[in-house]
Amino acid sequence: MISQKAKYALRALVALSRTRTGATMMIGEISREQAIPKKFLEQILLELKRAGIVMSLRGRSGGYALLKAPEEVTFGEVLRLIDGPVAPLPCLSKIAYRRCEDCQDETSCEVRHVFERVALATRGVLDSTTLADALKLEDMPI
């Protein structure tokens, strides 16, 4: 399960993706539109700015804008930035691997084998789905 912080980050980025190229959105506007607490959104946007995903401008026409095209930002990138590794078990993490304490042998662990398939499928979807894709999906019927 993703954190509320990651969900808010993705919602803010999708909102910024809807703006025309070069346009900015004020924090208050994103906060109202996406129902994200303003103080929490400030922290999230600062983290996204440090990672080079968004930029901020001061002044009358200030606000936040995407630094990258919506086609270049994947859900996987954002989730890893905000929540860390995308792995259901510590022994499946690529960047924060840790052997499960109760595991005798990873190569014969049936639980690991099943969740390895889950992790691969999940990463495949998250790493191939961009902000632009999310905008297209909202117009498609389920």
Rank of each mutant, 00 (worst) to 15 (best):
R58G: 10
L45N: 02
V125S: 07
L10P: 03
R60T: 09
E29M: 09
V86R: 01
P37S: 07
M140L: 11
Y64T: 04
I36R: 03
L137A: 13
Y8E: 06
C91V: 11
P85V: 08
T24G: 04
D139S: 14
Y64V: 07
K39S: 12
R123L: 15
Q104T: 12
I142G: 07
R117Y: 08
G59H: 02
Q104H: 13
V78Y: 04
A119K: 15
P85D: 15
R18W: 08
Q4M: 08
L66P: 01
S31R: 00
E101C: 00
T130N: 10
L13K: 05
L67K: 12
M55W: 02
L45I: 04
K94H: 11
L120C: 08
L66A: 01
K39T: 14
M25R: 09
Q43D: 15
V118M: 10
H113D: 14
R99H: 10
C91M: 02
L89P: 03
T129V: 12
A134V: 14
A69P: 00
H113Q: 14
T74K: 03
A87V: 05
I82D: 05
A132Y: 05
R20P: 00
L92E: 01
C103G: 08
V111N: 10
L92V: 00
V114L: 15
C109K: 09
G28H: 12
C103W: 05
G28A: 14
E72H: 12
A69E: 11
T74M: 02
P37R: 05
L135Q: 13
S108V: 09
L92S: 00
R11C: 07
F40C: 09
T107I: 10
T21S: 12
R18V: 06
E110K: 15
L92G: 02
A96E: 09
L10N: 04
I142W: 07
K38E: 14
I30C: 00
T107N: 15
K49I: 01
T130R: 06
L57P: 00
